[in-house]
Amino acid sequence: MMPTTKPIALPGESLLRARGIGVRRDDRQILASVDIEVHAGEVLALVGPNGAGKSTLLSVLAGDLHAEHGTVELLGRGIQTYRPLELARRRAVLTQSNAVSFPFRVIEIVSMGRSPWLRVSDLADDQKAIVQAIEATDIEHLLHRRFTSLSGGEQARVSLARVLAQTTPIVFLDEPTAALDLRHQEDVMRLSRTLASEGRAVVVVVHDLSLAAAYANRIALLHDGRLDAVGTPHDVMTAERVGRVYGLDVQIHHLGPDARPIVLPVRD
């Protein structure tokens, strides 16, 4: 484990606790009375149909958005009481849009992930975090390219590397697999598992239910701004529940040694 990521909490301990979260926007209830906890050492997948409130919930949990109702506590303290720099040392966020305004080189972008640790960590720690992030995201061959010249998938991986270099106890990933090919999708999810095994918590928004079920310790299923279910993939991914929430008949198969659920639409 990296020296800069000394476990703040023991595996299983609660890092983040949200109670009664409610968000309204333009007379529409985006989120209503959502209770959720994030534990050290787990991958928590947020799933749900388009417009269910996944990204909004992620913003609230990451401290970007202040919910009108409810409280969010990060490591026992209200998340709104943290200064931006304190927050940056505790949680990292991979957003959906990662455009860069000027043609920075890839290595410069990844190094930016270390900026919250400027003047508090050794150069050696910085180097190590950057090298590990680069290896984990398979971008060594891109380091001296300009970010603006990369393909969408490559940009996504470089941005992920930047987020990893931040070495925070909590990592939020908003649709990290959206622009990626099959192999890199699996890589990212496997990486989430590795982070969790180091004692960090990963909260990830995914659309592919089978992918979520294969890698997440717990799945939170959102439906119309409410938490429909939260629990292990086995408990949450039932044909009845997925069918009802998505409005589509599905069949659930179980594959592999630990019989993770695979969700397939019922097709004629």
């Binding site: 990451a62 970007d64 200064r83 931006p84 720099l85 304190e86 927050l87 940056a88 040392r89 949680r91 990292a92 966020v93 957003t95 849009s97 990662n98 455009a99 860069v100 305004s101 000027f102 920075f104 410069e108 972008i109 930016m112 992930g113 900026s115 919250p116 400027l118 930047r162 931040q166």
Partner: peptide, 20 residues
């Protein structure tokens, strides 16, 4: 240094600890 981070977009800069 902060202007460098701002090139990542306002939200990302905030995530990296910049008081935008």
């Amino acid at each position: 240094k902060r202007y460098d981070l701002l090139a990542l977009g306002e939200r990302n800069a905030r995530h990296l600890g910049v008081n935008v």
